[in-house]
Write a protein that binds this DNA or RNA. Sequence first.
DNA 1: AGCCAGGACGGAT
DNA 2: ATCCGTCCTGGC
Length: 315
Amino acid sequence: MQKLKKCNTLALETNEPFNFKFSVWKPSHFPTRLESLAGDSLYRTIRLGSGDAVGLKLTALEKKPGIKVDVYSKKPLDNCQLADLEKRLRWSYGLDESVVEFYEKYGCDTVLKNSIEKLYGMRNSCAENLFEILCIALVLQNTNVKRSQTMLENLLKNFGEELHFDGQALYAFFTPASILKSDEAQLKAECRVGYRAKYLLSIAGAFNNGFNNVDFTKLNYDDAKNQLIEIKGVGDYSASIALSSYLKDYSHVIIDSWSQKIFSKVLNKNFKSRDNVVNALKKRWDKYAGLAVLYVIENLYFTGKVNQRGLVEQS
DNA sequence: AGCCAGGACGGAT
DNA sequence: ATCCGTCCTGGC
């Protein structure tokens, strides 16, 4: 366990409109001890490029749209580390993006209108790196949310790094190296991940072996995806999720069996395949389809209209 | 008491 | 190319 103290503060400004809460916290994400929403603050952990884990306390900037970041670490970060962290967080929380054009185009769309009003100023966000997203996608495979949550919890307890700061007890994500110190039998027995154990090892192996040196932001979508699919345990769905989250590309829509059900209900159509859903969404929202999906889903979760089976309740 | 869930793989067609 | 059985586990 690491005790961290507040060493640095960053002020990250952005453009209007900006919704702090829904930009740093997403209702649809199952709770993990990677982050915690407490009052007006969002605490979370993050690994710097160096691999060092830090704790963050995010609050809304006063007077200006943006995020105030208190950085908790063992010792103060140097200017280079701070610059990297600032760049990373601006990217993670979409601070250099804008939702204005999206609102202008689709603010009156009958399906989006309500979601945009409720979540006004929300940006897409993803604080995890590629390795971390792929691990989350892995525990989502072939199971229900509750069990995904348990699996990730077990993995964090066994292989994550416990961080204590500002009264919070959170975990930094486990690293490829920490997973590789384990083996299939231990992962199954202690983390209850079943057949996913060998896939977790292969993902960790890939990221311990050069994938960290690949700059996926410099590859085109298809090339990047083909590289990810080479990893055993990463299929089309996981690779797409990872890339769209990581590259923040809203023109790609990823539909799984859960969002297929949701959009069948929302658009009042009985979609027979995921491709049918994707085509309908692209036709309706074009290059903003990914963002539109985010708004619809987050609003349904926030208003409690999605049940445990991923179905939209009648309203 | 089974059945099946927010995919991926490998082998068969 | 597309289809299908199988993979762990524990909620429901």
